[in-house]
Design a protein around this nucleic acid. Structure first.
Lengths: 209, 209
DNA sequence: CACATTAGTGAACACTTGTACACATCAGAG
DNA sequence: CTCTGATGTGTACAAGTGTTCACTAATGTG
């Protein structure tokens, strides 16, 4: 009666996902969310939930898919904006931080999922990170950087880079959204971490391992 | 009536903490634990919980303290067993993996807490990691390693080392407890990560930043 | 020994939770 | 048009939740 008309298909589905994300953004942990809580936040009756998801974990899985899109957008922007090789690290970190700020809830969900209780979500996020690392390796190859490294060693390096950035994510999420000074600190520190890694990669002789 | 006699003081408290840890070890996320659930697992009546903790988060805080002890034990063993400098990394990683396996629930709790919903727990764990990094820096100074680095750069390096190991923790926890092959893989990969970092530190010239 | 304190118990409370069921409305296929 | 399936709503219920209360047994201190 009140407001029954069916809008665009999948609208309620989106509202539910957005609601879960909003709760996570408010500081809640995804693992502690309940169906009723999510539907309440979405302004939908609890029963509607089952029309789109079998459980909260299922919703989580679909959120990871959307997270993948966010990450790909970020990657695209990084590729388009990083021009000179000497500022490569600094600019990439800047873009990462900017995206993390713009999609705080998404990235918080990602950080939570890494040690979350749903094995499936965990594996999906891990897989996204692997993909990211392999794309980074491709880019470095294409830019003719780190050419002295074997494929395996380049993968190793890129994996470490992605992990380092991912960890910085937890730093970023633990500080206030608009504490520009601290944000800049994280950006600087992350940049130095990556420089350290790349100096290591540049001086890596594969025979040593 | 049934079994009222008071045993050693703090016994129920320990049972409650052990129960929470056991649930985490079974794959549950700490943020999703409830008071009744924990007391049930501990074999104690719900009311008893309030004699020792004000909330589940409070219990979490006390758990971090115990986690600190576990970490210090690990550090002591590492200091005692690492003899030759050339095997320093490999042996340290080995000791870390061994402890992580022996105290799986504790370390799982730590990994969860890093992106957990209790700001306080998060900050405590972060503080433990900082302490760990600073102790590592002390050790490296004492061993006359990395003497060309400024204090700030040494801190940077040690911080990155600790983060890298912490991230490996999530790898370790995501694989089966007794999949020896995969465990060895994680150990090898982590070792290489750290070697990469230290090669970077060895070739780091502080003027570049 | 007496006594205040501490640490345990069970019953009760007002809510919240997940899920099932029957029903209403809409979109599109025949 | 009618029929069908998808998507929405309200009601209902049993089970689980956090917390309070009054009560009891053991402990250590004076």
């Amino acid at each position: 009666m009140t407001d029954k008309q069916r809008r665009k298909p999948g609208e309620t589905r989106d509202k539910l996902m957005a609601a879960a994300l909003a709760l996570v953004g408010k500081g809640r942990h995804f693992a502690s969310l309940g169906i009723r809580e999510v539907t309440r936040q979405a302004g939908v009756v609890p029963t509607s939930f089952y029309r789109h998801f079998r459980s909260v974990d299922d919703l989580g899985l679909q959120l990871v898919d959307e997270l993948g899109l966010v990450l790909r957008r970020m990657m695209r922007e990084a590729r388009a904006n990083v021009l000179q090789a000497d500022k490569l690290i600094e600019e990439s970190v800047g873009i990462f931080v900017a995206h993390a700020q713009a999609n705080r809830s998404f990235f918080r969900f990602m950080a939570q999922g890494l040690a979350g209780e749903s094995r499936a979500v965990q594996e999906e996020i891990r897989s996204e990170m692997r993909f990211f690392a392999s794309e980074l390796a491709n880019d470095l190859r294409r830019l003719r950087l780190m050419e002295h490294l074997s494929d395996a060693d380049l993968d190793l390096t890129c994996d470490l880079v992605v992990r380092t950035v991912a960890f910085s994510l937890t730093d970023l999420l633990s500080i206030s959204e608009d504490d520009d000074y601290q944000i800049a600190q994280v950006r600087k520190r992350t940049t130095r971490f990556l420089q350290l890694v790349f100096v290591g990669a540049a001086n890596w002789n594969s025979g040593s391992a």
